[in-house]
Design a protein around this nucleic acid. Structure first.
Lengths: 105, 105
DNA sequence: AGACAATATGTCATATATGACATATACTAT
DNA sequence: ATAGTATATGTCATATATGACATATTGTCT
């Protein structure tokens, strides 16, 4: 699967940037992944800024530390649904959310 | 206002109890649902504007007509992931996407 | 160093999303 | 009205996401 391919490249030290011809991703696929990663990064930023541990935050969203870690790492197994719910729980506004999406690259 | 929103949710298949669970939604939950419905509406708009049938569009995204219908109806069974991928396939830009999210209500 | 907290990684049983299919309903034509 | 086309609705087997758990790794102290 391509998501795994992406993860492997990432693990191997490849920077997932604006375009990656090795992945043979369509523009839509690229945009989707970039958006998702931007949301993940935003999540991590917001949690750290609030000085909440992954364990504490996991409790807030009725999840587990490991899943929070995977969210923040952009693991392919996590859905945008969960990331968005998490961001909203952290108090992100629609405007901020929109900003994250529109500026994702 | 509230009644209108409730009807919208009910029409979309969201379970609303007789004790008016709608009023018990947290702001995060409300924001999440509103965003999702806004994305669904945008999807329908964009498809119709392009004059593509649900069948034809389903083929484009490797899905089925019934799932497209459910997406556009805001059925609770569809993920934001799928809606976003669909929107991107329809050629939505990150800016437009951001606009949909920030203006959702 | 060693202890301790935070985070990362891997696995697994269950819950949920998915495409496919059947069928119903709505909408246009002729 | 009838036929044809588009969309809605319901169900189901399978695929995928999920929380939980164990364990590993990292970081931060003294």
């Amino acid at each position: 699967m391509k998501a795994n391919k992406e993860k492997k490249l990432k693990d191997a030290g490849w920077k997932i940037g604006s375009t990656n011809e090795f992945l043979e991703l369509t523009p839509e696929e690229s945009a989707y992944i970039e958006m998702k990663l931007a949301l993940c990064n935003s999540l991590k930023e917001k949690r750290i800024k609030k000085r909440i541990s992954q364990v504490a935050f996991a409790k807030k969203i009725a999840s587990s530390q490991s899943r929070v870690a995977k969210m923040e790492a952009g693991d392919p197994s996590v859905s945008i649904d969960l990331i968005m719910k998490s961001l909203l729980t952290l108090g992100i506004s629609k405007k901020e959310l929109a900003q994250v999406i529109s500026t994702s690259k």
